[in-house]
């Protein structure tokens, strides 16, 4: 049973970029429809403390921020559709989007804010123990590791935040990172070193995760390998959290839009239409088109820009 619906503007994604685009587009009377995607609220729904959202002086919780953004979009009559787009055709007008729900959507302008998903290392053993000791979401699964030993793999903000969060739950957290230095914000690194001094976090630097080990009951150890010497060691633990970064959710646009290193290329620059993609009428915002900044606040900023760019595009169509 296929349903068909046409909209002037469709926004794909329910992270900061998508909701900010919705607020701006709705206030321009574009009557946007926002299609949430599989992880409603995006990456922030799997975090806890957000301490760098301007104006929220005391910080706030990621899921709360995303609820507020959704309510804000709904206040200006954005229609929110719970669906996940699995195919697109951008070669004709209107654009065609096919949803998991079997609904076909068409639109005159499209804002792509599909964000990025947690990456895994790609080990067979990692895949085999998914949900049985391997996790990419400390806030979802940290509960299961109370007073047990765990490891976090990675050196960016996500990894450090997960290590800090888990250090309040687990008996011991080992941070496995392939380099000596970390990319995470300095303030987070300071907090981490404080936990190291308290004996709650151990650092395993210049090491990579080589294998996840376990049995039918789940993970019981990991093997880590030194990046230079190749020396391996076993760490007995019950869980390992993978936080090695994110991959942009661009698969469905492959062959439809020009890409750069897996991210959607946008025009950028100072002449306007900064969020325009290679197909006129398609705009991209947030992590899907940003391999440098990738912050909630930059995503929201790009979402606003995409809405303004789409508004101009739709105005010119009518003219």
């Amino acid at each position: 049973m296929t349903e068909l619906r046409h909209e002037s503007l469709i926004i794909l994604g329910s992270g900061p970029a998508g909701y900010a685009a919705a607020v701006y587009a709705a206030r321009a009377n574009l009557e946007p429809v926002l299609i949430t995607g599989m992880v409603m609220g995006g990456q922030l729904t799997t975090t806890t403390d957000v301490d760098n959202w301007p104006g929220d002086v005391e910080g706030l919780q990621g899921p709360d921020l995303m609820n507020r953004m959704q309510q804000h979009a709904e206040r200006f009559a954005t229609e929110i559709v719970y669906d996940h787009i699995s195919r697109v055709d951008l070669s004709r007008r209107p654009f065609i989007l096919q949803g998991e729900s079997q609904t076909h959507y068409t639109c005159d302008a499209l804002i792509v804010a599909t964000g990025a998903s947690a990456m895994y290392l790609g080990l067979d053993s990692e895949q085999a123990f998914m949900g049985k000791g391997v996790s990419a979401c400390a806030t979802c699964d940290g509960f299961f590791y109370r007073d047990q030993k765990v490891a976090v793999v990675g050196g960016g903000n996500t990894a450090i935040e997960e290590a800090l969060y888990l250090s309040n739950i687990a008996a011991e957290v080992t941070l496995v990172h392939r380099r000596e230095g970390m990319r995470a914000e300095k303030i987070l690194q300071d907090k981490l070193h404080q936990k190291v001094a308290e004996g709650k976090v151990k650092l395993c630097l210049n090491h990579i995760l080589d294998e996840v080990l376990g049995d039918d009951a789940g993970v019981n150890a990991i093997r880590v390998k030194h990046v230079d010497s190749g020396t391996t060691q076993l760490l007995d633990l019950a869980g390992v959290f993978i936080a090695i970064g994110h991959r942009p959710n661009t698969e469905i646009f492959d062959g439809h839009l020009t890409m750069n290193n897996g991210y959607i290329s946008i025009k950028s620059g100072l002449e306007g239409d900064a969020t325009a993609c290679s197909v006129p009428g398609v705009f991209a915002a947030g992590d899907v088109a940003d391999q440098v900044y990738r912050q909630a606040v930059t995503s929201a900023g790009f979402g606003c820009m995409a809405a303004l760019d789409a508004e101009k595009y739709l105005d010119n169509l009518d003219a």
Partner: peptide, 10 residues
């Protein structure tokens, strides 16, 4: 599910 789990709400 768990109250603190974002994906559970979907």
């Amino acid at each position: 599910w768990a109250p603190w789990c974002g994906p559970c709400k979907l």
